[in-house]
Every structure is written in structure tokens, then in C-alpha cells.
Design a protein around this nucleic acid. Sequence first.
DNA 1: TTTGACTTTTACGTCAAGGTCAACGATAGT
DNA 2: ACTATCGTTGACCTTGACGTAAAAGTCAAA
Lengths: 128, 128
Amino acid sequence: MNKYYSITELTREFGISTRTLRFYEDEGLIHPERRGRTRLFRPADRRLIQEILRGRRIGFTIAEIREIIQVYKDPPGEMGQLRLLMSRVEEKREELRQKRKDIEDTLAELDNVEEACLTRLAEIGVGT
Amino acid sequence: MNKYYSITELTREFGISTRTLRFYEDEGLIHPERRGRTRLFRPADRRLIQEILRGRRIGFTIAEIREIIQVYKDPPGEMGQLRLLMSRVEEKREELRQKRKDIEDTLAELDNVEEACLTRLAEIGVGT
DNA sequence: TTTGACTTTTACGTCAAGGTCAACGATAGT
DNA sequence: ACTATCGTTGACCTTGACGTAAAAGTCAAA
């Protein structure tokens, strides 16, 4: 069985362009199979793309995403490397926690904006 | 009294460049006062810059940030405009909620990475 | 067999968000 | 008077993440 996805199938599912997927391959993020020159994406490739897009949404660069992928498929074996990796992971987490806070603050602000809008609408409504 | 901040004072506080602040002025995000040609930033400007940087951290573009600022200083008075604004605000909120979820998922993943690292370190430690 | 939908590679274009550099003015310290 | 430090404008440069167009191959349906 082993279903394959075509490139446009995936671009449609994820709302991205073929250029983007080819670009991600050039950048070493994904490695779809080939039949002749044509790319064949397997479920694992699909899941990887989902993760890439998630990384993109939260503002990771291609380089950062590549790095995370590397860690997953090939965790370093040497001690110093491991420690280095861990400290970099901790940095990333701190950054993400900050970002989460930023988002929560902004969501709260947007609540205010919405309320102000509703008030304003009521005023106008009354005047009409 | 009415304290003023100099441009470098602010760049140091926020870890950004003078170019960035001047760029934000060109883009109409801030409007510091002037004494001659020199910019004078007031506390209100400073707070605005903080909000701009928060927007930047969560991935808003300059245009989006400008738009939000506009809403704050000049909420639309016309009904259709208000409805339009509210729907756009709701879109933004949905986007932010998605982003928050992405961040939480990624934080969970980074937990796993860290654990894997610790396990690996223990293995190496034992072998040493 | 021609049309249409899909695929490929190569290569130049674009856009946002600043970086960088030049050339200069104002002010303060030595 | 000289040097440092901080400020200005204006112009071009850079980087990341793709967009877009050209030229061509594959395959199924009409």
C-alpha cells in the first residue's frame, strides 16, 4: 500500500505553493522519494511538513527548523555537544515562553478593542 | 519635568538600533518630538515602542502594527467600518490562538528533547 | 493527437525589515 | 583647537523566504 502524496496534493492540503516545498527540499528540510524526477511524498514526509509549518507559524527561521529536525533524527553522541544542545534548547524555550506571554497580553488587548467597538456600536445604534 | 529619552537611551534599553527607531518613524509608527532636528522621546513614545516590539516578537508586520496603533488612537466612527474592524480583530485573535497552541505543542516537544538529552547523558556518564 | 493537468529544473525578481556607509552638525571635555 | 560622543539625513546593500517566468517532460482523457 504505502500511500504516496503528489506535490500538488500537499500544497492544496496545506495552502502552500510547490515552490515552497521544493525550496524546503533545497534547504534540506525534507527528502521526498523520486520516481524518475518526480517527487513522491510519504506520510512521514507529510507529517514533517506539518511540523515545519508549525515552526514557521511561530516564527522559526529555516535554519532553526533544520536544526530541530537534525536533533530529532540524529541526537548528538558527544557529551559537550549534548550540553551545548541542551542550553540552546533552554534558550528556545525561554523565547517561546516570552512569546506566549506576548500573545496572551495581546489577546487581552484585543478583548478591549472588541469591547470598545461594541460600546461604540451601541452608541451609534441609540443615536439612529 | 516631563522627562525625555534620547534615541540611544532607548536603543540601549530595548536592544535595538537607531536605524530601527528612525525606520519606525518613517513608517509612521511613532512620532517623537523634535528639538531642532534631534528626536525627543517621551514616556508615551517609549510605551508605544514597547508595544511595537511586542507585536514584532509575535510576528506582526509593520503594516499590521500600524493598523493596530491606528485603531487605538482613532477608532472608526462609522458603523460599517466598525463591523469590518471587529471581524478583522476576530481573525487576528483566531490567528493568535493558533499560534499559542503551536507554541504550547512545541514547548512540549522541547520537553521531550530535553529528556532524551538527559537520558543520553546518563548513558554516557555510566560508560565513562 | 491535441488538449489539459501535472511535473521538472534553472534563473532572475521581489518584499520586508532593517544594516551599513558617507557626510555632516551640535556639544562637551581636555 | 582637537577629539569624542551623540545626533542628523540620504542612499545603497543585505538577508530570508519565497514568487514568477521560461522551457521542457509525462500521462490521461476526448
